[in-house]
Design a protein around this nucleic acid. Sequence first.
DNA 1: ATGAAAGCGCTAACAT
DNA 2: ATGTTAGCGCTTTCAT
Lengths: 363, 363
Amino acid sequence: MAEALEGRRSRRTATLASLAAELGVSRTTVSNAYNRPDQLSPALRRRVLDTARRLGYPGPDPVARSLRTRKAGAVGLLLTEALSYAFRDPVAVQFLEGLALACEDNGSGLLLVPVSPEADDPGAVARAGVDGFVVYSMPDDDDNFHAVLERPVPVVVCDQPTAVPDVDRVGIDDHAAMVDMARHLAGLGHRRVGVLCMRLSTERNDGFASVERQQRARYEVQRRRLAGLREGFAEAGVDWSAVPVVERYDHSESAGASAAEQLLAQHDVTAIVCTSDILALGALRHARTAGRAVPDEIAVTGFDGVPAAERAELTTIRQPTLDKGRAAGELLLDRGDRQRSRTLLLPTELLARATSGPAREFR
Amino acid sequence: MAEALEGRRSRRTATLASLAAELGVSRTTVSNAYNRPDQLSPALRRRVLDTARRLGYPGPDPVARSLRTRKAGAVGLLLTEALSYAFRDPVAVQFLEGLALACEDNGSGLLLVPVSPEADDPGAVARAGVDGFVVYSMPDDDDNFHAVLERPVPVVVCDQPTAVPDVDRVGIDDHAAMVDMARHLAGLGHRRVGVLCMRLSTERNDGFASVERQQRARYEVQRRRLAGLREGFAEAGVDWSAVPVVERYDHSESAGASAAEQLLAQHDVTAIVCTSDILALGALRHARTAGRAVPDEIAVTGFDGVPAAERAELTTIRQPTLDKGRAAGELLLDRGDRQRSRTLLLPTELLARATSGPAREFR
DNA sequence: ATGAAAGCGCTAACAT
DNA sequence: ATGTTAGCGCTTTCAT
């Protein structure tokens, strides 16, 4: 009993070679017994497998096999945040579901690479035994991302960074989507608007973000969404330099709520545009708490189209997150002998729901 | 450019040995340049790294390193369902978050093993390059689980199967929790009750489950929860053989809704006890659709304590799902030289909320 | 149907 | 601080 436990505790006892010796056959034969049953007589195969069981041989070591075959049988996933964040953000979860679907179809494992934002040890990436990487939404100039690019395996990026030479990418047109949103609100008469956005750099800055900071943002997605809003509102004559943009480092409802509070404390706006549903849900919560009627007094919009946004009847941009995950996986796994890198832009959709309506002045 | 792509496409060009040859140093030195910077002069290290870059050497191959060091740097996760299910079930997502937290702390990767319920090829388990496995809620006698036990690495089971010799386990007292729930309802006067449960075997059976089927269930958790209910209601004089139990293979709200419908079509009960929140949420939805007032006309209870249950004010049993995940990871990763296997039972809590109230007869 | 030979690419004693 | 030696455990042509 204690011995069985011991046996399970990584003490490899028999090897393919020792088993072959015991049986008086070659290693090839033993290997074939596991990997190519048709290459040897059923009787011999039985004998091999029985002896294996008797000797406690657990079958070919997967790592040794991977070394030999040069296939790990797994896809690595690199995330912006700590590993566990993947399960906290509903958008990430959706993306992962799609990616997992693609892996499943391919019989590939999915290895979540343990990156710690603090310890900038890109070692984990270098140590990951994978056949390729999917990179989910990383800032420009990220060490871990660079480490991924060093690895001689295919890479697919989701969302950001864009424009990495020779790397496939799947994403959406963040700019165009936000131009749409701006037009939607401008069409409802909104001119005095405020914006809540996600972090723009890797250093924490919870507060207003200057136009310069917006343009220098290290997160391309945020940069493009803000630029889209700027362009869309410009069409309606809104001077962007007067539009307050509040940034939050953490991506959570409470961050959204506090950002909304900070915004409204200093600016009299008729609409709060958020660059994510989570932030918008927080803004909604603050509006309710503060007794600001939505959408009568103030409009609130999101981005992503998560289930909770639907329940809240949030006006938002729906993006096909699950499809992005699946497409990323397929791009990585089904690549034939394709030489050129590909970029896949998936469609988005403006969902005008109950949290946006005519601006106060127009009611 | 095309060459850079080619380079990324798994054609390993330089190796540690060729780099050493080029430099005229030993392989050890090159290895040290990467793994033990303190073992060689900074100047030499620079030279090694520079030459590596020039030659396109991507650093030590992780698989070869794993073979040599006998460490994969990753934990494998085995799930009941297809891989992607992990991201669809909120309870699984929570568990994974906890597990990821433990992995993170340990610098371990998390490998989701691609098991397909259909193709009973336990090969994926055998091929996973991991230092140990976490097994999440598997039925008794599962092929993939057996394959895990064959591997000479530590294993931690969450929930089920219980009582596997020499394997650590983390779980809750499902039986006791449901005794509590039965007492809660019985205390409110409920005597005519019905139950909605999750699948009891790997073959689909969407319909009523006989007492015998309940007792033969291959899913220990369901078996224990039903047994707990039986015991708890027995204290109030309820004859279990007259209690209708409706089983659903799929775990989804719509499964819960249809099960509730099936139950109510044939039985006049004052309470529907569900073995999961998801099923209960579905039952709630059906009750609303069918115009049955909850809790006035009928009580509905769940199990798990997911966020959606809180929003619905569902009476349920809260279990510390995230903690289970973290504990499973810690049990696997922080095992000292412990010889005995351990079982960790985490506490649960009955949350009496708005979906349970006095039985009709007692109002 | 089975075997022999030749590595896959690396690290860890142990020397020097 | 650097080199020597000795594998880690396996698969895969190519022969027989």
